[in-house]
Nucleic acid binder design. Structure first.
Lengths: 202, 202
DNA sequence: CTATTTCTGCATCGATCGATGCAGAAGGGT
DNA sequence: ACCCTTCTGCATCGATCGATGCAGAAATAG
């Protein structure tokens, strides 16, 4: 079978689509879906609206792809955290990753998955629902990881994995909201350490 | 001194400004500042744009007044909670109030102070900053209450009131974000109970 | 070279954004 | 009754929203 990608004929694209998507991600991250206008986005991407539509479809599609990039980039700490051998290690890594990602010195504060489209008008409902599903996916993966930890004896058998996952995600979202408001990295990390001092809550 | 409010001459207003503000509050709460258009607002308020501007100033002023109403209405549980005699009572009441307010069966899910304007474009920066200050005010009042609890011996002397207040607000915001995503009241209350089982975290 | 395909710059679309001007209606004070 | 103040309905403002049409530029295939 031929896995080599066939060279498309015709004039090649004059910009790097990956880099343009990264720029768009940063705009969405900082301003949210509704607050990011096409002009904001294309200015940052350095391309025309025509090129944006030809390459990414429309604004909602662009947001969807930016969110994918966010998941595999800034938010990749979650997947790595879930591979930690113990539940405590998982949660420690989740909190550390959340704090670091939501308070990057050069970059938007907060979490795209939270502030991207938490409450919107009708025209942005697609983006809002996308983020609801995104957050729910994160919650479910954490819950499943805790279920495994209970099975492994790593967490007490009376633990409710679903409730514990709600607790962890709530703290992560709370970190993100405070980071969006300008609360500093060290303070948030200290707070996460405080929460971790009693683990698991029972 | 004459405290009786003087009767304004001229044609009296043809609608109840308080009720109109309540309707506007609900729209802002559900759709956020940017997601709530003037048409959305005036439709819900049952008045014309002219009347809205004459009565409330402009969209940002309307939002500011709606937020005041929110603070004294749906969010009044915070002030009551701070009067609880013990720190544990305070936090218990804060979480209960947050859960109830963010999951009202008839009404928007989530918290206006969180989802009203978490990340925005330039034109909505005023509303965003207003909510940052609103959340910071809530945080400060909780911190001060914990400082008093330490002084009273209600909390251990080694307690860091600022960090503890960050922890409590983080959980409250986390509850609000999950409520905005449709997570149910009972589940969130169970999660809050779980967090309260170990108090204070140390 | 020519033919073909794709991409890009410019102009612009209809809809909606927040916000006003204006004239007449509607109620108060005297 | 009258006058005077305020409020309201209608029309509309310029700006911006997301999204396209079109023609020419640019690159590959033959």
């Amino acid at each position: 079978m031929e896995t080599r990608q066939r060279r498309p004929t015709g004039r090649p694209r004059g910009f790097d689509a990956d880099e343009a998507l990264e720029r768009a991600l940063l705009v969405f991250w900082e301003r949210g879906y509704e607050g990011a206008s096409l002009a904001n986005l294309t200015d940052a991407m350095g391309i025309s609206t025509t090129s944006m539509y030809a390459t990414f479809g429309n604004k909602e599609e662009l947001f969807r792809k930016a969110l994918e990039r966010y998941t595999e980039g800034p938010s990749a700490y979650l997947a790595r955290a879930l591979d930690e051998p113990t539940a405590l290690g998982v949660v420690t890594a989740i909190f550390a990753g959340t704090v670091r990602t939501t308070t990057r010195p050069a970059g938007p504060n907060g979490c795209l998955g939270v502030q991207g489209a938490l409450a919107t008008g009708d025209s942005s409902r697609g983006a809002r629902d996308l983020l609801v599903a995104w957050r729910d996916s994160g919650y479910s993966r954490i819950r499943e990881r805790f279920e495994r930890a209970v099975d492994d004896g790593d967490l007490p058998p009376e633990t409710d994995p679903a409730l514990l996952a709600r607790y962890v995600t709530a703290l992560a979202y709370g970190i993100a909201v405070q980071a969006a408001g300008g609360v500093g990295r060290d303070e948030l990390q200290d707070m996460a350490d405080l929460a971790l001092r009693d683990w698991p809550p029972r």
